[in-house]
Amino acid sequence: MDQSLIDLQQVAMAMFSYMTTDISRVEMRRVHTIEAEGEDMLSLLFHFLDEFLFLFSVEPFIICRVVKIVEFDKENFRIKAEGYGETFDISKHPQGTEVKAITYSNMQVHQESEQNDIFVIIDI
């Protein structure tokens, strides 16, 4: 798999890992699909994360342990991804902190670099 896809998945999983202090307690009981599109790489990244944040924030409040990108259209900046997880339950999952929003503040995607660094600041 393309390294940039793996890294994008990691960004989404890193966000979910902030919502509980023990992500290993999240069972992969359901799969949810999100779709996101942008006008450039940064807005695609913004919307990709925002869709997952929305998935967590409304009924049925899904927290994902694993995120998989199933389609990635680099030309038109479109992503289709699956999140594997379950309903967030405070009696089962130790509460982490709340992500309020995704921000563009100093957002960086270094596709040219070897490590393919991605920086996103989320508001918590």
Binding site: F54, S57, K100, A101, I102, Y104, S105
Partner: peptide
Amino acid sequence: HQVATDALVAMEKAMKRDKIEVNDRQLA
């Protein structure tokens, strides 16, 4: 949080139309 996010996205488009330039994308 969502009202702010929605506005940010809507304003990014409006900025192109109205030719408003800012130093930081988060300052939509």
